[in-house]
């Protein structure tokens, strides 16, 4: 448990947060939790995984869901809670991980060995990355970025008592345009290393 490290990465769409988080997990040799979370949770049940993918990291739709005495009918909310429980269970077992999204900084807020990071980037860099990665026009890329960031903020702010993308929510907010993907990864790894030393001293 002493060596455990829980790194949570919030990110703006197109900022390169995913790439940075993945590189950090690979270089540290720890679990990388992102899109494959459903595969892990329902291993071997392909039908269920494809069914649940529709509800993953989405918000409950007003008028189509209801709450009764703390219970919810929303598959989106129920899946989110199930995922939170799964992730907390992993953390309780002493697993180290880099978790992207899913209100990670709120989820692990009470865990001692937790580092929360938010990755942003210059608008032009984000647009260029989305255009390059998805073959979209500039207008399409901007519209997709706005849509995704809005949905991520809503999802985050529904479950967390802090605001998505606001500096006070995280330990460290970084603009990936300044040092580039690799430089930012190096910097963050060095920050994590320093935090690890600090954890040991506590």
């Amino acid at each position: 448990m002493d060596d455990q490290i829980l790194i949570t990465v919030g990110r703006e769409f197109g900022s390169g947060g995913h790439v940075i988080a993945k590189a950090m997990a690979e270089r540290m040799g720890i679990r990388y939790c992102v899109r494959k979370l459903l595969d892990e949770m329902f291993e071997g049940d392909e039908k269920k995984i494809s069914e649940l993918a529709h509800y993953d990291e989405k918000l409950a739709i007003p008028f189509l869901s209801r709450r009764v005495r703390g219970h919810s009918s929303s598959p989106e909310e129920n899946l989110a809670k199930l995922q939170f429980e799964y992730l907390r269970d992993l953390a309780d077992k002493g697993e180290s991980m880099v978790l992207v999204g899913r209100c990670g900084e709120w989820l692990f807020r009470d865990y001692p060995n937790h580092v929360s990071i938010f990755v942003t980037a210059e608008e032009t860099d984000k647009v260029a990355r989305v255009m390059d990665r998805e073959g979209k026009t500039e207008m399409e890329a901007r519209s997709k970025m706005a849509r995704h960031d809005k949905s991520r903020a809503k999802y985050h702010n529904t479950y967390s008592d802090r605001m998505w993308g606001q500096a006070s929510t995280y330990d460290l907010c970084v603009n990936a345009s300044r040092l580039g993907i690799e430089g930012t990864t190096d910097m963050l790894l060095s920050y994590v290393e320093k935090r690890r030393e600090a954890f040991k001293c506590q």
Binding site: M41, F42, R66, R67, V68, R69, H71, S72, S73, P75, N78, L79, K81, L82
Partner: peptide
């Protein structure tokens, strides 16, 4: 709502 929620809590 309650039945759906109990089922969901168990996967």
């Amino acid at each position: 709502v309650v039945g759906i929620s109990v089922a969901a809590k168990n996967g």
